[in-house]
């Protein structure tokens, strides 16, 4: 009975909220500011030609820096919640499946490199590339070709944190020159490419870690 009353109240409140929000949205006039023009005007100084990538890594690059910190942090939380170590022995899949995974993995790496490179002028970039890399690692694990990850050794830790460390180091180096992440226009393209390349590897490892650290045998 109490649960039913709670459901009723929550659903009723949600409906009222939706009705109020829809009503208010329908009467909304044009926004006071339009950032599309300034984003385009300064695009040549950002080092990239795709406006979303320019916002993501230059105009609002600080958000992205903190966002990578959040990802690394989630991985730390997973490691900290831990549980007894001992990775599950991989179950070998059908040889046919293994063979096609072997074939797919290098192609996925190729796609990741393309996405990274295309990010400068098309939708794409480090996160998308990293996600494809992580998918390749998960695929190899699922068909039984690689083991789940245990507590990370130094090399893996360097790989996981390296992209963020590089991003932070560039940000700090630019800070000593005047502004945090204040890319000089002449170098912006190269620096952003360097950061994105580093992030691709680390993001691939972190996202793969979300899966592979969890596939440990928790007992």
């Amino acid at each position: 009975m109490k649960a039913l009353a709670k459901t009723f109240v929550v659903v009723w409140l949600a409906l009222v909220f939706v009705a109020a929000a829809i009503g208010a949205m329908l009467e909304l006039g044009p926004a006071a500011l339009d950032l599309r023009a300034p984003v385009t005007d300064h695009l040549t100084d950002t080092g990239v030609s795709h406006p979303v990538t320019a916002v993501l890594l230059n105009y609002r690059g600080y958000d992205t820096l903190l966002e990578i910190a959040v990802l690394l942090l989630a991985l730390l939380g997973i490691l900290a919640a831990g549980g007894a170590a001992g990775s599950a022995a991989p179950k070998a899949a059908h040889p046919m499946l293994q063979a096609s995974a072997r074939l797919a993995a290098p192609l996925m790496i190729l796609v990741a490199v393309y996405l990274l490179w295309a990010g400068a002028f098309l939708p794409g970039g480090a996160f998308q590339a990293g996600a494809v890399l992580a998918a390749a690692a998960v695929l190899l694990h699922l068909v039984g070709l690689t083991r789940g990850w245990d507590s990370p050794r130094l090399r893996l830790r360097l790989g996981l944190a390296g992209g963020f460390a590089l991003f932070l180091a560039v940000a700090a180096a630019l800070l000593t020159q005047g502004a945090l992440l204040g890319f000089p226009p002449a170098w912006a393209g190269e620096l952003i490419m360097l950061i994105e390349a580093g992030l691709t590897v680390s993001l691939g490892l972190i996202l793969a870690g979300f899966f592979l650290f969890l596939s440990r045998d928790l007992r």
Binding site: V39, Y59, R60, G61, Y62, A179, L180, G182
Partner: peptide
């Protein structure tokens, strides 16, 4: 005050 990226609000983020 610190304009991250040297852009300044509202295009960039300000501290």
């Amino acid at each position: 005050h610190h304009a991250v990226g040297g852009w300044g609000a509202p295009l960039g983020i300000d501290l």
